[in-house]
């Protein structure tokens, strides 16, 4: 079997960041492998451990730095990585990403492509479904569990839906967008980190994919990010300490007379 995981490198959103003149200050950010993509890698590795014949490749579209995210996935246990690298990718939205990935996958053989359900920085969650539509293959998002049936050439996906957990069977080839509720990604071992340096990291250029530079990045995007800002901060309100019964009567009083929500 052959799986790909689409990996994006994103700023660590748990860290403090700065916005100046409407722009995110990129210098001080710490970049990581998107947590949802890490879950997709982890799930593939679990399958790989069970099936052993699974060949797992990673693909990332992005700047030079992106190789660190790929390296992380390789250290976790993927076989090899493809780094579609070009300065022209700066400012890509999900549409542009899907275009590039479509060009990449067009002539590739695969049984499944796993994506993250969304990127932690943009929280967009478009790329996987868009890519599936372009490649004309079925997809499911928000997967919290995968079971592969190699003989039937299908995957049984458990997804978190509106009415509960839905189990959907997709035949190969297909795309599954993974939730981080699927698993806890492993932290690479020291040996894994060492091995990752020797695994193939294939560079791919926009030209290799037969794409014009204006089909990618900002000009290949359908939406433009105009500006960023901090939301109106909620002010910390009052904090009460004391006996439980006092606390409760204070709260009831506040909710009734001040906030008027009771």
């Amino acid at each position: 079997m052959k799986f790909f995981v689409c990996c994006k490198q994103v700023p660590d959103v748990a860290m403090a960041f700065q916005i100046k003149d409407g722009e995110l200050q990129k210098d001080d950010l710490n970049y990581v492998l998107n947590a949802y993509d890490a879950s997709a890698v982890e799930e593939s590795l679990v399958i790989k451990d069970a099936v052993s014949e699974l060949d797992l490749s990673l693909v990332l579209m992005g700047a030079e730095k992106g190789k660190e995210a790929l390296r992380k996935g390789l250290a976790m246990g993927a076989n090899d990585a493809f780094h579609i690298e070009d300065d022209a990718f700066e400012g890509s939205d999900s549409h542009a990403a899907a275009n590039v990935l479509e060009a990449f996958f067009k002539d590739k053989e695969y049984d499944a492509i796993l994506c993250g359900k969304q990127s932690q920085d943009m929280d967009m969650g478009l790329t996987g479904g868009l890519l599936a539509e372009k490649l004309n293959i079925p997809y499911v998002t928000n997967a919290v569990g995968l079971e592969v049936n190699e003989e039937a050439k299908s995957i049984l996906v458990t997804r978190q839906g509106d009415a509960g957990q839905e189990k959907v069977e997709l035949s190969f080839p297909c795309i599954v967008s993974c939730s981080n509720d699927m698993n806890e990604p492993r932290i690479p071992s020291l040996r894994g980190i060492m091995q990752s340096k020797k695994k193939p990291m294939n560079k791919v250029s926009v030209a290799d994919l037969g794409l014009a530079t204006d089909a990618v990045g900002k000009s290949g995007s359908k939406s433009t990010l105009l500006s960023m800002d901090f939301p109106k901060a909620r002010k910390a309100g009052e904090k009460f300490e004391g006996e439980a019964s006092e606390l409760v009567s204070t709260l009831i009083d506040k909710l009734t007379n001040e906030a008027k929500v009771l």
Partner: peptide
């Protein structure tokens, strides 16, 4: 959850600009 699932496909099928 359903909208998050079908909308990317719809955006692709109609060649629209999607923003979630």
């Amino acid at each position: 959850e359903s909208v998050k699932d079908y909308l990317p496909g719809l955006v692709g099928a109609t060649n629209a600009c999607g923003i979630m």
